[in-house]
Computed example of a mutant assay.
Amino acid sequence: MSVNRSAEAMTIFAVVQAALFPVIHMGRPWLMYWVFPIPNQFGSLWPNFNSPLLWDVFAISTYFSVSTVFWLMGLIPDFAMIRDRATKPFAKKIYGILAFGWGGGAKHWQRFEELSLVLAGLCTPLVFSVHTIVSFDFATSVIKGWHSTVYPPYFVAGAIFSGFAMVQTLLSVMRKVLHYEDYITRKHIEYMNIVIVVTGGMVAVAYLTELWIAWYSGSRYEDFTYFSPGAATGPYWWAFWALIICNVLIPGLLWIRSIRRSFFWTFVISIVVNIGMWFERFDIIVINLARDYLPSSWTMFMPSWVDVAIFLGTMGFFSVLYLLYARTFPVISQSELKTILKSSGESYKKHHTEDEHHEH
């Protein structure tokens, strides 16, 4: 309950960054409206539904709309709380609009709980479908190394793996800056680290599957795929090993209980996982495209300053959105914490003394 609000916000802000890329990749961003099935001056120009670019549009727009509704729904009781405590008339007015006339009556809570349940039910299959569709962008193509059936489950596991790591990164900072030590406890980070270990294991199995197929097939052409003995010793060996170290070896340290329960090591490992997942995307795209079917078209990829600037720009854009959210909305769901105050209050002293003991 201390973690979900930030996870939802992070999802929405990350999806905003994701939406920029299909537009950039079109090469003609001023024609971006062509991907939407809208009436237009060309009679009836409808998109090509076989195009992975269009699948991205559907995946991203569905993900964004459902996540936003889910997030804003959860915020309504908190907006009402801020509205009632706001001193400035302007702030009171804004939060009043956002609270949708919430009064906190039994009927309000009943409907709130019902809708939360329905939206949570919608969100779960949505995560699976969205990341599966994103993996189909690769898996349905004819480029060697991409044309693989392991991609859908592997992308879903990878999304949960990197998503939890990102939540750990952001909340570790929030915990210190906003003094949320009593709300984001050792227990929270330990449970999240367990999820990271499990999904990291799934990702490692996917890597091993690819490696095994590449080696066992005995095909020389498998050596040019992103996960093969050839990739490990080829021109992009550094990217290959960065992926293995960041996504398999270092998260493996979370099997050790003292590291799994340490705030400092959790923060460090979460950043390493984020770097590793970036290298995974880099490897999938660059290693496979650098060695095409014709040796005459083999080439090394060097990012231009434009590539680097776009990447850094999305990180900056994400940070701005997240900081604005932290400045204006409650980072931790107040209404949900109130529901568990009694259950956590009785064991609070015991946990607190344990934590202090650990700190010493």
Rank of each mutant, 00 (worst) to 15 (best):
Q110K: 10
Q110M: 10
F112H: 14
F112Q: 13
E114V: 11
L115G: 07
L115W: 13
L115Q: 09
S116G: 07
V118A: 12
V118T: 08
L119Y: 02
L119H: 02
A120Q: 12
C123T: 06
T124R: 06
P125E: 10
P125H: 07
P125W: 07
L126H: 08
L126T: 10
F128M: 15
S129C: 07
S129Y: 08
V130A: 04
H131Y: 11
H131F: 13
T132H: 04
T132I: 03
T132C: 06
T132M: 09
I133H: 00
I133G: 01
V134C: 03
F136R: 03
D137P: 00
D137F: 00
D137K: 00
F138H: 06
A139K: 04
T140C: 02
V142I: 00
V142N: 02
I143C: 06
I143D: 08
I143R: 13
K144R: 14
G145Y: 13
G145R: 13
W146C: 05
W146Y: 05
W146P: 01
S148R: 08
T149C: 04
Y151S: 06
Y151C: 05
Y151M: 13
P153R: 14
P153S: 15
Y154N: 06
Y154G: 03
Y154A: 14
V156P: 01
V156R: 00
G158H: 07
A159K: 12
A159S: 15
I160F: 12
F161M: 05
S162K: 00
G163V: 01
F164R: 01
F164W: 08
A165D: 09
A165Y: 02
L170D: 04
S172M: 13
S172W: 10
M174P: 00
M174V: 07
R175V: 07
K176E: 13
K176A: 12
K176V: 12
K176S: 12
V177I: 14
L178R: 10
H179F: 05
H179T: 03
H179M: 06
Y180Q: 13
Y183P: 00
Y183I: 11
T185N: 13
R186W: 14
K187T: 12
